[in-house]
Amino acid sequence: MSITLTEAAARHVTRYLSKRGKGVGVRLGVKTTGCSGLAYKLEYVDELSPEDVVFEEHGVKVLVDPKSLAYIDGTELDFVREGLNEGFRFNNPNERDRCGCGESFRV
């Protein structure tokens, strides 16, 4: 099981944590929502939880709860800039379908 980050994503997370002045990494998970059923959730983390599964890439920790891991195993987290927009992109090999608005997915 693995979650990976591109160098661009790791740089962005490292910069943001530095600006915040605290934090141990990011938590990646899924929640039930949207027209396709699941949506990604990503948040900065200040403390590890005992149930967290921890992955580390390019010096950045990615924490995942065990329930979400089944849906996002193998996902690569990227940070992209497209024109004036920027944000995280989830390259998840388990995705079978994505809703038209791009807010949710199905495995």
Score class of each variant (00 low, 15 high):
A8C: 01
A8Q: 12
A8F: 09
A9G: 09
A9K: 00
R11K: 14
R11A: 12
R11S: 14
H12Q: 11
H12I: 03
H12D: 01
H12C: 00
V13R: 02
V13L: 09
T14E: 11
T14I: 01
T14M: 10
T14C: 01
R15P: 00
R15G: 04
R15L: 05
Y16M: 04
Y16C: 00
L17R: 08
L17N: 04
L17K: 03
S18Q: 08
S18I: 00
S18T: 03
K19W: 02
K19M: 10
K19D: 01
K19T: 02
K19A: 11
R20G: 05
R20C: 00
G21Y: 11
G21D: 07
G21L: 02
K22Y: 11
K22W: 02
G23N: 02
G23S: 00
G23F: 04
G23W: 06
G23V: 03
V24C: 11
V24W: 06
G25W: 05
G25R: 03
G25H: 09
V26R: 03
V26F: 08
V26T: 08
V26I: 15
V26E: 02
R27H: 12
R27S: 13
R27G: 05
L28N: 06
L28K: 03
G29T: 06
G29H: 08
V30F: 02
V30Y: 01
V30G: 04
K31H: 11
K31T: 15
K31W: 13
K31A: 12
T32Y: 14
T32D: 14
T32G: 13
T32K: 13
T32Q: 14
T33W: 14
T33R: 12
T33N: 14
T33I: 15
G34W: 07
G34N: 09
G34Y: 02
G34T: 06
C35F: 14
C35V: 11
C35P: 00
C35W: 10
C35Q: 15
S36V: 00
S36R: 12
S36T: 03
S36H: 01
G37R: 01
G37V: 09
L38G: 01
L38C: 01
L38N: 07
A39D: 08
A39E: 05
A39R: 07
Y40K: 01
Y40I: 05
Y40M: 00
Y40P: 03
Y40S: 00
K41T: 14
K41E: 11
L42F: 05
L42N: 10
E43D: 12
E43A: 15
Y44R: 07
Y44S: 01
Y44Q: 05
V45G: 09
V45P: 05
V45L: 12
V45I: 12
D46G: 13
D46V: 10
D46E: 15
D46K: 08
E47C: 07
E47Y: 13
E47K: 13
E47G: 04
L48R: 15
S49A: 15
S49K: 15
S49T: 10
S49R: 15
S49G: 04
S49N: 13
P50K: 13
P50A: 12
P50F: 10
P50G: 10
E51C: 07
E51G: 09
D52S: 09
D52H: 07
D52Y: 10
D52G: 02
D52F: 07
V53H: 08
V53F: 06
V54L: 09
V54M: 07
V54A: 11
V54R: 12
F55A: 08
F55K: 07
F55Y: 15
